[in-house]
C-alpha cells in the first residue's frame, strides 16, 4: 500500500479536528474534536510502524498508550466540564471569560447581554467556583434540603 494514503488521511482528520477545536462553542464538542486529532496521530503511528517493520513495535505500543491517555483525558475533561456546568449553568467556552482582560475604555462586549453570562460574572472574587450562590444546581439542592 502506498504510504501516502494513511498519511494523507491522518492529515485530513487532524485538520478536521483542528477546525472543530477552533470553531465549536460547546465544550463537549471541543473534546470530540480533540479525540479526532488524537486518532489522526494514532493512525500515523500505526502506519509508520507497519512501514518501518519496527522490531520493538514502538509505534503500536505508543498507540496503545495514546489511547489510554486519551481515555484518562476524556474522563478528567468531562468531569471539569460537568463541574463548570454545575457552577455556571453553561458549558459554552465562549462565556467562560473571567480571566479575560477587561474591555478597553468601558465598552461592553456583545455577549454580555445574556443572563447566564451576567450570572457567571456576578461571582465576586470572594466567591470561589465551589460556593457560588447563584447557580441552578445549588438552588436545586437548597430546595431539596428545605423539603427534607
Amino acid at each position: 500500500m502506498h504510504l501516502a494514503y494513511p498519511a494523507v488521511l491522518a492529515v485530513l482528520l487532524f485538520c478536521t479536528g483542528l477546525y472543530g477545536v477552533l470553531a465549536r462553542r460547546n465544550a463537549i464538542l471541543v473534546l470530540m474534536s480533540v479525540e479526532l486529532m488524537l486518532n489522526a496521530v494514532n493512525l500515523n503511528l500505526v502506519a509508520f510502524d507497519v512501514w518501518l517493520r519496527d522490531t520493538l513495535h514502538a509505534g503500536q505500543a505508543l498507540t496503545l498508550f495514546t489511547i489510554a491517555i486519551a481515555a484518562a483525558e476524556i474522563g478528567i475533561g468531562l468531569a471539569i466540564v460537568l463541574l463548570v456546568y454545575r457552577n455556571r449553568g453553561t458549558s459554552d467556552v465562549d462565556r467562560l471569560r473571567d480571566l479575560a482582560d477587561p474591555p478597553p475604555s468601558g465598552q461592553v462586549p456583545p455577549d454580555d447581554s445574556d443572563d447566564s453570562m451576567a450570572a457567571a460574572t456576578d461571582n465576586g472574587p470572594g466567591n470561589g467556583p465551589g460556593n457560588g450562590p447563584d447557580d441552578r444546581a445549588d438552588q436545586g439542592t437548597r430546595a431539596r434540603r428545605q423539603t427534607a
Binding site: 485530513l12 482528520l13 479536528g17
Partner: peptide
C-alpha cells in the same frame, strides 16, 4: 473523513 466533517 466525511463522518469527521459532519461531526465538527
Amino acid at each position: 473523513f466525511g463522518a469527521a466533517v459532519i461531526t465538527v
